[in-house]
């Protein structure tokens, strides 16, 4: 379990990092916190010729108020910092609630917010919640910058819109609208394991408590974050009742997702858990939306 040889660059600025990527393209891989990449190197599952280490680019690690009430998180911000940040807790409570679910304390001390998103593991909580929260990602290369909505960013397992010469530099999350609640529920064998199934929900209510809009996003049931569109449609403009939520959860589990078997859970068990967790998440989110 030793990696094959690679060249290592340790740029001190974003521009320097971008120039390495511009030069080496597909041969280069970005090293952020290394919590996924380093094991993959040691297993020889990833064999990049060049590593570009972003850990000395300290100006990519920040949390700040976003425009009109949202929050902006620099890509190299460590999970642990996000977990403890008061702005995040206030303006993006779903992120705040999610952070302790990510792996272990040790991994959260080193792993980065942007690294997890750019890695695009379908089991990653941040992938699912960034879609549920309608986050946006700022990608930069030597030739310029573009902003991509989270919903468009993830293309499949470990695959995103990032071009080889691009770096994810910032994530931003909009203001939480009024009368909006959130929840994330997941089941993992041990608390730090990848979830067998997880679901993040954001629900907005009309003034009369009918559901105005809902987003239900799963992790660990597909090649990427899976948005339960049919289930959300059944909730639109309806008054939340136990029967309604139960039926929506059933729709999500049966129609919106197509989980697979693996050594930890059968597809059948994953559907079952998806149903249970969706109902629980919707209940919690609606409670919170009511305030």
């Amino acid at each position: 379990m030793k990696p094959p040889p690679f060249e290592y660059y340790n740029p001190q600025s974003l521009d320097e990092a971008l120039s390495h990527l511009a030069e080496h393209g597909y041969d280069a891989k970005i090293l952020a916190g290394g919590q996924s990449l380093v094991p993959m190197l040691n297993f020889r599952l990833a064999q990049p010729a060049i590593l570009v280490d972003l850990n000395n680019i300290t100006d990519l690690a920040y949390i700040q108020n976003g425009d009109s009430g949202g929050v902006q998180i620099g890509a190299m911000t460590r999970h642990a910092q996000v977990e403890r940040d008061p702005i995040v807790a206030d303006r993006a409570p779903l992120i705040h609630e999610t952070m302790p679910m990510i792996a272990t304390t040790q991994i959260r001390s080193r792993g980065t917010f942007g690294g997890s998103i750019a890695h695009a593991d379908p089991s990653a909580e941040l992938v699912a919640i960034s879609v549920a929260l309608e986050g946006k990602f700022r990608l930069r290369s030597q030739s310029g910058e573009r902003e991509v909505p989270a919903a468009d960013f993830f293309l499949g397992m470990f695959t995103t819109q990032l071009e080889p010469e691009e770096i994810l530099v910032e994530t931003s999350f909009p203001t939480k609208p009024a009368r909006t609640g959130w929840a994330i529920k997941e089941i993992a064998r041990r608390p730090h394991d990848f979830a067998l199934v997880g679901v993040a929900t954001v629900v907005s209510l009309h003034a009369d408590d009918r559901i105005q809009n809902s987003r239900i996003v799963f992790l660990s049931v597909g090649d990427g974050p899976v948005v339960a569109e049919k289930a959300a449609e059944t909730l639109r403009d309806q008054s939340p009742s136990p029967e309604l939520l139960r039926a929506a959860a059933e729709t999500a589990a049966v129609e919106d997702i197509d989980p697979s078997n693996d050594i930890h859970a059968s597809a059948e068990f994953r559907r079952h858990l998806a149903k249970v967790l969706t109902r629980q998440a919707l209940e919690t989110a609606i409670e919170r939306a009511k305030g």
């Binding site: 067998l196 930890h264 059948e268 079952h272």
Partner: peptide
């Protein structure tokens, strides 16, 4: 056992 096995047995 595992949660998955309990699911098979119990459900």
């Amino acid at each position: 056992l595992s949660p998955n096995k309990l699911f098979e047995i119990l459900y």
